[in-house]
């Protein structure tokens, strides 16, 4: 409360002088950002800016989830609050339309593709790990034991606001800000404003060790696709178009990938996700489903 008192005690002339200095300092950089100048004009005019943001909802939600991880890691309530506000602006549907084609990463015996679809996959998206080796079809994939949302790995806006509040601790001032932001987000959601920022479909999946999941997407230009790995397991993620061009590729632990889809990309797209189980160096995985990785695929909510 002391800081509020001291800040408000500034003479108005000082505040105006500070505002002028800020505008001089900031304006060149702000002009470089599309929409920023318009946003500034709206603020100067006192008009609330309530239009849907440019950029797609997939990118927005992916940004939110990555911010949450960052805020969590550093115990930063403000970062988690920013994540929560972004998450609240996107409606997330649990994906039903897609299921991955799951295959074993077996590289011992060459084998002809079983059918045209398998051929397309083995010659295209799955050549990440070892282009010379075929991929054999595997039995039905194991169902995930818990969805990422159920496991707390893909928190929704409510969980994020709650976490921000917990991290704010004894800072009443920040706590009030978080509660107010949550109330505003809830009011907007009830009014249907969240849908104005877009709706996405989130598909939680479990990838067994030494398996490859292939997701086939319609791949609309400008929509984007995101994959979030959970739990620190190592993954390879690749997005390729129908002509085999690599659009995005990422490898690592605790992985995050957002892939914008260029207009020139040939549909359909295939997202391939490979588990990189480090224990496989010492021999084949015999853990009967133990290991592997959980991840969430985020796409636009339209028909795929």
């Amino acid at each position: 409360m002391m800081r509020k008192t001291s800040y408000r005690s500034k003479p108005r002339s000082v505040a105006l002088a500070g505002k002028a200095a800020l505008m001089m300092a900031v304006w060149p950089g702000m002009l470089a950002i599309p929409g920023a100048a318009q946003a500034q004009q709206d603020l100067q005019g006192g008009a609330p800016r309530n239009e849907a943001a440019a950029g797609d909802a997939v990118a927005r939600l992916a940004l939110s989830q990555q911010l949450f991880v960052q805020g969590q890691a550093y115990g930063d309530a403000l970062t988690v609050l920013a994540a929560a506000r972004l998450a609240a602006s996107v409606r997330v549907d649990q994906g039903q339309a897609l299921t991955p084609r799951s295959e074993a990463k077996i590289s011992a015996t060459p084998s002809a593709p079983a059918d045209e679809e398998t051929e397309a996959l083995t010659t295209g998206p799955d050549s990440l790990a070892d282009p010379g080796m075929p991929v054999l079809a595997a039995p039905d994939p194991m169902p995930p034991p818990l969805s990422p949302a159920e496991a707390g790995q893909f928190p929704d806006a409510g969980a994020m606001f709650a976490r921000a509040l917990a991290l704010a601790g004894q800072d009443d001032y920040l706590g009030e800000l978080i509660v107010a932001a949550q109330a505003q987000a809830q009011a907007q959601a009830q009014a249907g404003a969240a849908a104005a920022q877009g709706t996405v479909a989130a598909y939680g999946a479990h990838l067994a060790a030494d398996q490859v999941d292939h997701w086939q997407l319609a791949g609309k230009s400008g929509e984007g696709v995101a994959v979030l790995g959970h739990g620190g397991a190592a993954l390879e993620i690749a997005v390729r178009d129908a002509s085999g061009i690599d659009l995005c590729r990422e490898t690592g632990a605790g992985i995050f990938l957002y892939c914008a889809i260029p207009a020139a990309a040939a549909a359909p797209l295939v997202v391939s996700i490979t588990s990189q189980d480090t224990s496989s160096d010492s021999g084949p995985d015999t853990s009967s489903g133990l290991g592997g990785a959980d991840y969430t695929l985020i796409t636009g909510a339209g028909p795929q």
């Binding site: 991880v69 890691a73 707390g152 790995q153 969980a159 976490r163 509040l165 706590g175 978080i178």
Partner: peptide, 22 residues
């Protein structure tokens, strides 16, 4: 805020708390 704080501490799963920093 206090009630929400208690709920949040109880609700946040362990997996999320163990996230590694990017």
């Amino acid at each position: 805020i206090f009630l929400s704080l208690i709920a949040a501490v109880l609700a946040v799963p362990v997996a999320a708390q163990e996230a590694r920093p990017p």
